[in-house]
Design a protein around this nucleic acid. Structure first.
Lengths: 224, 224, 224, 224
DNA sequence: TATGAATGAGGCTTCATTCAT
DNA sequence: CATGAATGAAGCCTCATTCAT
């Protein structure tokens, strides 16, 4: 029994190690520029071992993408269900979610960011591809809902919520990518502060900029 | 002489054709998923001809990246030198620059977007790589200067200009990518409107949100 | 012009050389036991060159099988159209066809003999597979027709022509294989004489033999 | 003791099961297209267990071939020793032996049919290879002896007995293969009837046929 | 004794690059 | 200059075999 458990643990550790290495590499160099041999070497397993756990390179990639999409979905769903919460707060949480989870698993997040429809589609089975895009679409929809709620509540200006959702996702993904490049270039890690600045700008931009002086004072406190 | 000139013209046309085809393909499928044979076929030249004009696949890629960086640099330099122009207007122009030029040459812009330090570095000579990153750094610096000017002029809130510059670039790059994926997925092309919405949000977010009602009225006109 | 022609000739020579080597190897070791690297080495070309002329290993194999099937078909068709010719003579020609052509191109014939439905099917496209089996069926049919004619003419005993066709093909293929094995084992080449003996036995066995009614009656009892 | 016996029995059952599965698979797909994993799964043992009983894949294959050769040898020896029996009857028995035993164990017989000198030699140790070929040669010799006896007895025409032996073996092997392919193609199983038709034809062809001298003369001219 | 995870050699195929024409 | 056939390294994947348990 103890043996079986240990084996199970070891197996899981191995899978995790492979995923970690693969995620790092995919994130660093993109899907096609990473060879299975490279991944195997990074994970310190044999080439063959990769295929013990993942049917193919695509499967491995997918196994990295999929849980992130799932995770995002859940997170946002959770937040959105909180009807009490002001939408700007929700947005802040959304951004912070990335700022907080990204550093724990940057590689995997990046592999997701690196998802490019036109590059990936020919490599994946149609079903897999659709599965990913559908999930992504849902995630976008949820942000859209937050924005729409804000508009209904009169907190946000009446802007096309779908456009804002695109902007929000573009902004987050863009920043993650940007900061990663910066870090790689030797710059300091400023993900947290950049994300924070971004969400502040965004929320300020979205907000119905009030006429009352004290409102402004209140806002400037938040932004500082 | 006339012959020599014609030959020269033909040569240039050929190079242009190759670049166009290569740009389109790189943008569509990424660097590694495009073969030289594909590019040659698209440009209607022989594989060998590619190597007459470009030392390698990397060189060809670089030849696409480089002028864009140069172009960006010049454009922003131009704008920035216009000391009279309000910085928010400058930002608007910056975003519009992408919205306007991208559709003309989406391939090349995208090839630039795909430039990711860690992916590209192993493919390029160290010198080339440094050249590109240096150029990019300059571009970032120029946006930073615009923001700084806005802050000095009291038009923008006092936010770390470097952070804002990162955000601006992240946002633009993120949107281009995002919209490309959306387009590929069969969605309508909404690059123009998304960019416009984004810059409006950004400028509103940056602006010192005034207490005067009419200022607000003025702003909302711009945004609508 | 001369250059183009020479190139064409060289190309054809190369293809022929590849086919020759491939045929020899397939015949010797079967489809799956031969590697493309082996074929390339035997043909003294690079691995890549194989793919200049053949899309895949299967395609190469098919290119060896197909013309033989075609050839057989034509030959038998020709013979059969000769309505004047006694069927036993036709059979003799059929056997001699193999005895005569096999030594010129033993490898290719063997690659054909080596065709095994269950081994090949999973490796080939459904269409290719059907194409081959259909052609084979036609070839069998033609021999059947010869036998049927002989029976109608009263030259052959009334035996199920389809069974005889199977036997004829089995016999020819069996002998080619058998003799090849013998030759490989160091034995003398006796293909010609074996084939001749076989066809003599076969024709004698088929022929309405005895003049005496009761002898025939006796035989037919045995055969029924 | 009882335990030891049971273990022994279990072990033998296991070996038998492995051989059965392996034979079936080899027959269906050929030597190289069958993986050890496949065999293990079919036999419901672990991959490792295969190597407990067989040193290698080749050894396993050999263990299937060898007893058949042995069996053939014994059977024919038995038959031949029956000096009383008319040789045509012996031939009939020989053919029937295949027709009767093949369906019980088609896999193993086929694995034997696939034995082709040039394919197998590189896979086996020299000693093993020689062992198999020697055994086969003996088998051929025995058929030859039957034919020779028939000729001596005046029952068969005076034809080269060695040639006839080759033909007999070629015919049997050819038919087994042919019928297997037919069956795979969806056709009805006609092994029994085909074998019977074949032996009838063969015996008729071999037999000193006509009562009239000139008929025989005519024939013998053809055959010589 | 039995297992099956792990290994790594080797198979098919693609493709950047060269070079004879 | 231009071509495209040829090369061979490298990529993905399979599988016979081993070995720790």
């Amino acid at each position: 029994m103890g043996v079986a458990e240990r084996k199970q643990r070891e197996k899981e550790a191995r899978i995790k190690s492979i995923k970690k290495s693969a995620g790092r590499l995919f994130a660093k160099k993109g899907f096609s520029n990473v060879s299975m041999a490279e991944i195997a070497a990074a994970a310190e397993v044999s080439k063959g071992a990769l295929y013990l756990y993942f049917k193919s390179k695509e499967e491995l990639y997918f196994s990295l993408i999929e849980p992130i999409l799932e995770q995002h979905h859940k997170l946002i769903a959770e937040v959105i269900k909180n009807e009490e919460e002001p939408p700007d707060e929700t947005l802040r949480k959304f951004f912070n979610y990335f700022a907080n989870t990204y550093p724990n698993d940057p590689e995997v997040h990046q592999a997701y960011m690196y998802f490019r429809a036109e590059e990936i589609q020919p490599l994946f089975s149609e079903e897999r591809f659709r599965q990913v895009t559908r999930r992504m679409a849902k995630n976008v929809q949820m942000v859209e809902d937050v924005i729409a709620k804000g508009i209904r509540q009169g907190i946000f200006k009446p802007i096309n919520p779908r456009a804002v959702s695109s902007i929000v996702w573009s902004l987050v993904m863009g920043i993650l990518r940007w900061e990663e490049n910066r870090k790689y270039g030797g710059g300091r890690d400023q993900l947290q502060s950049t994300i924070e600045a971004a969400v502040n700008l965004l929320v300020d931009g979205l907000r119905v900029c009030s006429a009352e002086p004290d409102r402004f004072g209140h806002e400037s406190k938040e932004q500082s």
